[in-house]
Simulated assay, not measured.
Amino acid sequence: MAAPFVLGEKEEAEAIVSKDEGETCHQREALEWMIRLQERPDDAPLHDRFRLWRETPAHDAAWSQLDHVSALIRQLPSSGGVARVPAVLDRRWRRAGRTILVPFALAASLTALFLGRDLLPIPAAATTTRTGEVRTMKLADGSRVILAPRSAMTFDGARHARLLRGSAYFQVRHDDDHPFRVVAGDAIATDLGTAFEVAMEGATTHIAVREGAVGASCAGGWKDPLPLRPGQTEDLDCASGTRRRGEMPPSRVAAWATGRLVMIDRPLAAAIAALRPWHKGWLIARGPGMARHVTGVYDLRHSDRALAAMRQAHGLSITRITPWITIIHAD
């Protein structure tokens, strides 16, 4: 466990994290725009939306960087290595009567540029995990923390954890005089004698209780008057002031710790998002069908099998541009 930060060091590190995550988000959007424009070169409304998106300085910078890398690679001597997207895997592209040709070098370089930074250690983190890696930590007070893949955490003292990315499962040794707190963004989960999961999902913090009780609150002062009990969940967005409670069998809380993904009436997009930390490469989820709710149990340690099962059950279209980039579309 790392020693607490000196005054000012933590704030500076968090500012670096925030800046990097913002840049990575814009870069991902730029790459998705490149794919859309390549798919639908004659779609005038799409081009209008792209021009509107690019008017934002941060978006324009991300696009310029992407275009610069593409231009450099196009200047390299051709080695004849071209990856043809299998049209049979994507009905929409097959109907269009064409396949998309993507140079291996371009795909590899773009993946390294836009995906690789997500896998680097966060400056403020005491502990990070790689793709597919689950790490268990025993704390000095006897509590135990299980960190999910592609996650990052630090500690602000012996009983204060700060989740910087991803998910973690906490089995806490209760102490009335020194409550164990987990901060994730602006959300705070406070141990009331419990085992619980905290996950960062964009602007939302997901809290789920397996044993005991957890208090949910926000750094700005809001506090849920009723603690979460076993099997209860809460999706908390402190920035917008919204929260949504749900329920699930307590035994399925943090099922990822045993390599299982359990989805109970959750959006398909959430299932794809849960697969990403276990998948070596970039999963791009697209299409209106990503909003529909699904239920199922999938093997996280074999993400390709999980994707194949989702495709069979929900009619997904899966296109692998390279071994590193996979596009999943749901009509």
Rank of each mutant, 00 (worst) to 15 (best):
G193L: 11
G157P: 04
L226Q: 15
G202D: 10
P103V: 08
R301Y: 09
M34C: 08
S79F: 05
S240Y: 02
L7C: 04
T242E: 09
P121D: 04
T295V: 05
A13E: 11
A61W: 04
L316H: 05
E211H: 15
T129E: 07
L163A: 04
R244V: 13
E9C: 02
K10G: 09
A152Y: 01
R311I: 05
E23C: 01
P230V: 05
R94T: 05
M263Y: 04
I207G: 02
I284N: 11
P103R: 07
P41A: 10
A96D: 15
L37E: 01
E197N: 08
I100Y: 05
I188G: 03
Y169A: 14
A309K: 12
E55T: 10
R173N: 12
T322R: 05
Q312W: 08
R292I: 02
D331G: 02
A271L: 11
S240L: 08
G287L: 10
K19S: 14
V214G: 12
E29L: 15
A107N: 13
A105C: 11
V253D: 07
E9R: 05
I73G: 06
A61I: 11
T326C: 09
D237E: 00
R252M: 12
A148W: 02
A255R: 05
L110Q: 10
L66R: 08
I207F: 14
A112F: 07
L307M: 11
S79I: 02
A112L: 13
